[in-house]
Write a protein that binds this DNA or RNA. Sequence first.
DNA 1: GAATTAATATCAAGACCTTGATATAACTCA
DNA 2: TGAGTTATATCAAGGTCTTGATATTAATTC
Lengths: 141, 141
Amino acid sequence: MTAGERLGLDIKRAEQALMAAKSAALKDDGLTVAQYAALLALSDSPGISGAALARACLVTPQAMAAVLKHLEERGLIARSAHPYHQKMLETRLTEAGTETLHRADERAVRIERRIADALTPGERDTLRDLLARCVTAIRTD
Amino acid sequence: MTAGERLGLDIKRAEQALMAAKSAALKDDGLTVAQYAALLALSDSPGISGAALARACLVTPQAMAAVLKHLEERGLIARSAHPYHQKMLETRLTEAGTETLHRADERAVRIERRIADALTPGERDTLRDLLARCVTAIRTD
DNA sequence: GAATTAATATCAAGACCTTGATATAACTCA
DNA sequence: TGAGTTATATCAAGGTCTTGATATTAATTC
């Protein structure tokens, strides 16, 4: 199988370009891509647990714990014990976190906008469909 | 911009599925995806420098240096001074490295095969084209 | 020939991700 | 009620990647 036939390389290249662009865009706000993703998920689900947040961001709970530690140190999130589940920690955006997220999201959306504008609506649907079928194929043993 | 409109998430999801599958496939050979990628590039360009290898794998020279350190410790590659350029280190696969790469590549190709088989030839071309246009759009400031 | 520029290698610090292991709390069900 | 399962949080180790900084060598330019 030649390198040219391996679609994995094309997927990886696209993802790397995306990460590089987002990293650069978020740097001014002092956020990493992982931190931005966590803040974005938190704004959608206030009070979510660390484990659930990890699932939403497709990483392990341990990886998310490290991200949350940094965000808490910077005062962008606040964690408090769940009223009933003593083991659970509820996480919420602080005011500073909400503001930082809005600023960061503006920059991040510009990149998504560039992608969306480069494709027609039909092409966007096609790309999404093809990628979804790739994921299914990859996960099929 | 809603989450559903952001194609970046679809690209990221596909890349994550790919990395997870490849990591699992390579684990039996004791290789990480980064190590496999380095060995594969080395088999294409014997004697290449660390910096050039880093460019081929789309990572920084420092990241590649760490990967090469591990591969050298395991005896899968050998590094030697370039005859003219004293600063350069030529890197080559050892016999063990070649064997390990062949075993690993067999497993990795199975995943690429699954992706290719899930799409028609026309769809593969379409996907590659759409991803390439995304990369161009992402990099356009 | 001398100074500048480019390329290579490497040290260091910071962030993220993984797997593996552990402890505790909550839920389930027999 | 009590045992087993599930969910959560967290510690630890290994690997990768980044940026920033430094030293040395090669190539270029004047």
